[in-house]
Design a protein around this nucleic acid. Structure first.
Lengths: 340, 340
DNA sequence: GACTGGCACTCACTAGTTGGGAGTGCCAGT
DNA sequence: ACTGGCACTCCCAACTAGTGAGTGCCAGTC
């Protein structure tokens, strides 16, 4: 059964009121606050239908209605326009990010900014290397049997790692290894490097074979495994704001989930280009986060996506506002990355 | 007035019971559980004295007694022996830390380990550079006017930073700069380097003066400013364990304080060599942490202290256990650093 | 003088009761 | 199709004992 115009309007009003007041909303209050031009009785009929369709529910008989996860979903998809940011917010974003000195700092500032603007928990994935390309490799001899491998990516991110070589290696040999590696890998996207690393080992002169083999292991680790690993988090204190009504009483599972980087990466790392993804309550695969909603988006220079960011909060959150904020911040950070 | 032997015994019993049960403890239960060889009435008299002296208090008239911050303090200072760890705990520490691949990993594992063993919030400061010494400097040319400076410290920590040079610089000049810097700084403790960096600029050949000046700024930043910056955190979910009785209801201020790195550094960074510091409730300078206690200690290779670590939890925590755990972990990590 | 048993008292906590009110569902009327 | 009216439900807050753990004090004992 299709919901007519007014029923949708009623649903929107319920969501908005409930988000604002955190209290079940009844038919009378609804008519008063939003100027629906009908009587409470009519609204009640509409509500009955909305309830039957699963968009709202009553916490107890004869209490007001509360949106269900499906209700929020419909609201987000059909009933809300993304709120444009205020001038003040735009300026806050700029001012907050403008002084960043390096990549770490950008991420750090971004995550705090998001937490502050949305008053939710904010998560930012460090720019992933996998979709970026290699700018330079450096091998630094620490001792005759030890090298430090440093990789610099286009995004400005630097990764380093120590390697123990199988035997003493001369300075000239290190130079040659460096040359070979750079020749083969510079400019390539990280996702494409594994076969190239393999080729490096196979094509190496016999004398360079052992050290190159040792290096290849570490290169692969650096290039692939660690490439999407890091996550920055801020605003956990915001979880403790809404009394304890949100999250049905216990913050524990939420806090636990937030400490699992793997989980966060799953939530915020899997983003399609220029899409804002909203996961509401039950839609969440992670059991512990069934009482929470997530707004996530990708970011990166231009149209490229090098990482995800977003916020997490109670299902009863200001979706339009948060979506707008997350998008705006992501875009701004993308521009910042493009410049450097 | 001096407290006699038995009164102290009573205080100890109160603290232990209260920590275990989280409930005010009365005279009768006390006599039953600990075999004090006196009657409840006698204990009551002792309690009255302890209360007068400010070591315990009654939440309400005619409820049991609860230790005050001062009571915990006395308990920690005089009445408790550090609990030796169980064999299982020792093995857990080893197993947990043994697979660590690099410094970041060590810190990361350590903090999770601490959180798990103590069931509190754990904090570990990354090994500070300031008391460690320089192992090697590397300059990596990115372009003719851009260098990457990489510093490797004795602790294994690596810092890198980009520098824009005032003008094009030849490869030979870079080599010379690298030689000069290493010659002057390798082996020195980071705290001692600033004057040496100054000297480097002054003693440089005229042609190397401009790039060396640019470098010196970045060197100082790397060596000094960023040297104590980072902190790892785990176990915040443990805050939400004790119902909401701990922290008098609101986690908010605690979570907020935990997000301020500056605060954490103050708490866990200011550690004297081989001392375990315990801050109980009110003793805390930070307003928001007046309902919490902190157990912190320094760690480092041998007798050197390169950073702090510890745990934070409700004043009603298992001090002897936590102190033992924090010490053991700190010691183990210290050994690990000494080996590398 | 130190300890004990006894006793009256306090007061948080629990369970049961009650009234009020917000909100609903339904129905007859426009 | 919408509305006003009305009976009904049931959460919530306030009140009322009743209970019991715990105390302070005191007189008595070793």
């Amino acid at each position: 059964m299709a919901l007519d115009e007014r029923k949708l309007e009623v649903l929107r009003a319920i969501v908005e009121d409930y988000v604002a007041t955190q209290e079940p909303v009844g038919s009378k209050a609804l008519v008063e606050r939003h100027n629906l031009r009908v009587s409470p009785a009519t609204v009640r009929n509409d509500m009955a239908v909305l309830e039957e369709e699963g968009y709202i529910r009553q916490p107890h008989t004869s209490a007001g209605r509360v949106p269900t996860d499906a209700g929020y979903r419909l609201f987000v998809d059909k009933l809300s326009r993304v709120k444009p940011l205020t001038q003040a917010e735009r300026r806050a974003i700029e001012r907050f990010l403008i002084g960043a000195v390096d990549l770490d700092d950008v991420v750090h500032r971004t995550v705090r900014l998001l937490a502050q603007l949305t008053r939710q928990v904010a998560v930012v994935q460090y720019p992933s290397l996998s979709r970026a390309s290699v700018r330079h490799f450096e091998l630094v001899p620490i001792s005759t049997t030890r090298l430090m491998v440093v990789m610099i990516a286009e995004t400005g991110r630097v990764e380093q790692r120590l390697v123990d070589l199988p035997g003493p290696t001369l300075a000239d040999e290190v130079t040659e290894l460096r040359r070979l590696i750079n020749e083969k890998l510079v400019g390539k996207r990280l996702v494409d490097t594994p076969p190239l690393v393999q080729a490096l080992v196979e094509e190496a002169a016999p004398s360079l074979r052992p050290p190159m083999t040792a290096l290849s292991t570490v290169l692969l680790e650096t290039l692939v495994e660690r490439s999407e690993e890091r996550i920055a988090l801020a605003g956990t204190a915001n979880l403790a704001r809404g009394g304890l009504l949100d999250f049905q009483g216990s913050l524990r599972p939420i806090l636990e989930a937030l400490e699992e980087e793997v989980i966060l990466l799953k939530l915020f790392g899997e983003v399609e280009p220029s899409m804002t993804r909203v996961r509401i309550g039950d839609e969440n695969e992670i059991e512990d986060l069934r009482t929470a909603s997530i707004v996530a988006t990708g970011y990166g220079p231009g149209t490229m996506v090098v990482g995800g960011m977003g916020v997490l909060g109670p299902t009863r959150m200001d979706y339009p506002g948060n979506i707008a904020t997350v998008r705006a911040v992501a875009r701004y950070v993308g521009d910042l990355l493009a410049q450097s």
